[in-house]
Design a protein around this nucleic acid. Structure first.
Length: 256
DNA sequence: ATGGTCGCGCTGCGA
């Protein structure tokens, strides 16, 4: 089974690229972030014609998350329980024996800002929910744009980013708190090329210079970690014409 | 050089 996550930065703009990528990569499940569409404007027909079921939690202009899957999607949730939020950042869904939680974690803007406080509060509530989900499901994948680089290996220039947003100690501790529940950053289960990133700012030719961060993650529960076969970043779509600023991340695992 | 690029949607905000 192949699962993937991609922050598309507007599905309106990126739909052709998503369809191309689905055709070439053939994931069984794909979590999208930053669709920036209301549910009414979601391109359900085009996605279905590509062979995927879909659920979407969208809003106008900002945020928006979706799960695409070749098999039927059941047991959906669109909020962290007890943390209702008008910002559409969460879709949980069951696909066969897989529990998928697709996230668009708040960016946080700047350390110490109101948005930063919201990010940390959001992550704290997320941790309680993921603990419950781990108790209910064996095979859980938490995918998405985490807006946190787990470690300095995930940063093109750790000195430049030292204690900056996406890299600050409280953010990394919040992520470590999720891993402490039993989740694994699947990417680090395998040997990887150095300086592998998943997001590059549009400005300053950062992609060409590989000035990026790895902030798009696939976390796996113990049973899923045991079944892992690969976990990679597919940087190819970042080099396409008019790209998202994020690349898809992909993990494969054996099915029982 | 204290900027720079996108997307949304129409003025500046969010990333």
């Amino acid at each position: 089974m192949k699962i993937a996550s991609w922050n598309v930065n507007s599905l309106n703009v990126r739909l052709p690229q998503v369809l191309d990528w689905l055709a070439q990569a053939q994931p069984d499940v794909l979590g999208l972030q930053e669709t920036k569409l209301t549910d009414e404007k979601f391109p359900t027909d085009a996605i279905r014609e590509a062979g995927y079921e879909v659920v979407h939690a969208g809003q106008k202009t900002y945020n928006g998350v979706a799960v695409l899957a070749k098999a039927p999607i059941t047991d959906c949730a669109f909020d962290i329980p007890g943390f209702e939020d008008p910002q559409r950042r969460v879709v949980a869904a069951t696909i066969g024996g897989l529990r998928l939680i697709n996230l668009y974690v708040p960016n946080g803007k700047a350390v110490g800002s109101d948005k930063y406080d919201y990010k940390l509060a959001w992550l704290e509530h997320l941790r309680g929910w993921l603990r419950d989900e781990l108790g209910r499901h064996e095979r859980v994948a938490v995918v998405g744009d985490f807006n946190i680089a787990p470690g300095d290996d995930d940063v093109h220039d750790p000195a430049e980013w030292h204690e900056q947003i996406l890299c600050s100690t409280p953010e990394r501790q919040a992520l470590a708190g999720l891993l402490a529940l039993g989740f694994t950053d699947s990417f680090r289960e395998f040997d990887q090329p150095e300086k592998t990133f998943s997001w590059w700012d549009y400005r300053m030719n950062n992609f060409k210079r590989n000035r990026g961060l790895r902030i798009d993650l696939i976390l796996t529960s113990p049973a899923l970690t045991h079944a892992l076969e690969t976990s990679v970043v597919d940087a190819e779509p970042r080099a396409w014409e008019r790209p998202s600023d994020h690349a898809p991340v992909v993990a494969e695992f054996a099915t029982p």
